[in-house]
Design a binder for these strands. Structure first.
Lengths: 213, 213
DNA sequence: CCATCTTTGTGCACGCGTTCACAAAGGCAT
DNA sequence: ATGCCTTTGTGAACGCGTGCACAAAGATGG
């Protein structure tokens, strides 16, 4: 039976082993003292807790370059996501196959959502169309929205929205780049907490309070 | 002179006004007591600190759907980024215009980086090509990399990498979605800290220690 | 010029998450 | 079966970031 110790996992992930054990303990006591964690069982438990074992039908609205890229993205299927439909407002797109699936017209949005029991929608439309699409999705029963359009969506309570701004990541790189370049001359002006450590995003987040356009 | 108080800004951003003032104070004392912050001046100071006032030439390697989407993305220019070149390994792509700019062949990668003084590279290639492209970018002088390929890149010290995994965001939505659905039946099993609050990414991050594939 | 009012900048305390450290527990060899 | 070794699970302490609360500072009006 292949096992891992919290120490090994912590080293691999670059975190403290005690925190890792404590986090795991919230899921239950899946480890064996003196041995470690059964890899297969642990993977299953975490997958289940994160919802990876469920099947999540999603629709992608707005099949431009980005929408097409998302439709072709391989990482979705392996995480339990199934692209149920591709939807676009352009009648010329209707029926055209993208990622082995015919694009459908916006007119049928509501029916598609219902028929497939979709609760997660992805918006990859131009900024101008996003809010309207969002409202239709929500009205049709979608309760979680991933927004790639450069707009802030307003939604009723109970609906989750996550906004992906591709340029923010670049922004952060540029910030560090500036640091690298400038730290020879200006070794004084330190901005301690706000934006200093390492990266990634997670269920919760940390945003600098204000970010100018 | 248009001004804002820390109170107004804090309310708009949904944060505590004291923290906001303290954060601003790290940039210097730009406020006026009894009045607030001069909007224009504040925007400039923050922009400068974040590196928005500089011109950052970037190259995008891998002009598939995603690369094309990035090339067309309007948000870059307004944040000080200038797409200096689009690079692809496919000879058939060479010379083809994407977002009003001819795609160049990978062979010229090093020359392009040098000629344009590029220090930030975006990788939007298939997973298999990413590491190799990464190494060539670094060898040519790039010190910050934004990686959209589903691979973990290894880079020498001094090079920053940020990985964007489009499915992680969906993952997080699905997690909350699962919560919504299940909280009626199972009001007990709580996973307290790891993954509960609200979203967004920032210069620093919070990752669940372990995330299975 | 003084009084009053508003809002900043910040010392200090509280609270929460991380880390330490160890007792309990299971495996394994003798 | 007994003892030793390894690793978990967790109580308790530490440290750090957040929020409170107030003094200092500037504006504004009389």
């Amino acid at each position: 039976m292949p096992t891992v110790s919290s120490e090994e996992l912590a080293a691999a992930a670059g975190v403290n082993s005690a925190k890792l054990r404590k986090d795991f303990s919230y899921l239950g006591s899946y480890g064996t003292r003196g041995v470690g964690y059964d890899v297969e069982y642990l993977v299953y438990q975490i997958s289940r807790e994160l919802g990876l074992t469920q099947d999540w039908p999603v629709v992608i609205v707005g099949i431009g370059n980005l929408g097409a890229a998302l439709a072709n993205y391989g990482g979705f299927a392996s995480r339990g996501f199934r692209v149920a439909a591709l939807i676009d407002a352009d009648p010329a797109m209707a029926g055209k196959p993208v990622a082995g699936m015919p694009v459908q017209h916006t007119d049928d949005l509501e029916k598609i959502i219902e028929d497939n029991g979709v609760s997660i929608g992805v918006i990859a439309t131009p900024a101008g169309a996003a809010q309207q699409v969002c409202e239709r999705l929500v009205a049709a029963g979608v309760t979680s929205i991933l927004n790639f359009a450069p707009t802030v969506l307003s939604v009723p309570d109970g609906v989750d929205v996550r906004k992906v701004d591709l340029s923010i990541e670049l922004q952060i790189l540029a910030f560090h780049e500036q640091r690298k370049a400038g730290e020879d001359l200006a070794a004084d002006d330190v901005v301690p907490p706000v934006a200093a450590k390492q990266p990634r995003k997670g269920p919760d987040g940390d945003v600098p309070a204000v970010m100018p356009a």
